[in-house]
Design a protein around this nucleic acid. Structure first.
Lengths: 142, 142
DNA sequence: GTACCTGCAAAAGATTTGCATCTTT
DNA sequence: AAAGATGCAAATCTTTTGCAGGTAC
């Protein structure tokens, strides 16, 4: 994603464009696999050692508030982040800490359809996401 | 759930029956809505002020290892726990911190069926769970 | 009796906060 | 110029750890 696009994202959210925010935004876009706060801090500070840890925490909170990022929940560990894009599901590996996005329009559509017909008493459904747990296969059979 | 049943649960998992473990097990069974560690500690210590916080952490970890409890992931907060029973899904309220179990055999079956036919390349599916986000309705229409 | 548990208190981490200073708009 | 951000360091909070003593089996 180009730098100008990142700038736009910030402006569109009503945030001032600062080098610190640009650095964090670039980091979360570059780091795949749902980086932890720790990874984000390391990545940002590699290029900008002068950016304070406290600032990065504040920026991540701001981004989450503004909907630029979402927090991903993990069972064992600390917070991890996800760039907000379209609806997707998550693959969780039971053995490693890997989390991967899983796009599946058909699955999303099936679930939406399901809940269009089946109401949950006393609850209004806004978003649906499947947690798929299992493990990544070491090698593809051939 | 009766005390004798809780004892059995411990024995069946190869754990020694101690008053501390009984207290924690009772607490997580009594506290609905996926209690946080904090809530569990408060509940346990109300009746047994002498049980150490460190011990409760250790017990929760042991229970999770043995499969008596599972950790529930939340976006905003700390760890929360869930008594392991049958497969179920979770309703997350966007406004409050409420998490509720949602049993739906039909939904579970539909997902299983779906993934029996649709393989995810390089990933073996072990468990499926739907995160349903939205909000609880204040009042039932009548 | 032995293996396993617990209590305690210290340590380790992660995240938050307050405030003076600096930047973006 | 004003509003909003940042840097720094201290404070807070949660969770983990080590170990001596205790308890269930």
């Amino acid at each position: 994603m180009r730098s100008s696009q990142l700038r736009e994202k910030l402006s569109a959210s009503g945030l001032k464009i600062t080098p610190q925010r640009m650095a964090v935004l670039e980091a979360v876009h570059r780091l795949k696999d749902h980086p932890s706060t720790e990874k984000i801090i390391a990545h940002v500070q590699k290029a900008h050692p002068n950016i304070a840890v406290g600032t990065i925490y504040k920026i991540l909170e701001t981004f989450t508030d503004k909907g630029l990022l979402s927090k991903v929940k993990t069972e064992q560990e600390r917070m991890r982040y996800d760039v907000v894009t379209q609806r997707h599901h998550h693959l969780y590996c039971a053995e490693t800490d890997r989390i991967e996005d899983y796009m599946d329009e058909e699955l999303s559509a099936m679930l939406e359809e399901y809940f269009r017909h089946k109401a949950i008493p006393g609850f209004e459904v806004k978003d649906l996401r499947v947690e798929i747990k299992g493990h990544f296969l070491k090698e593809q059979p051939h």
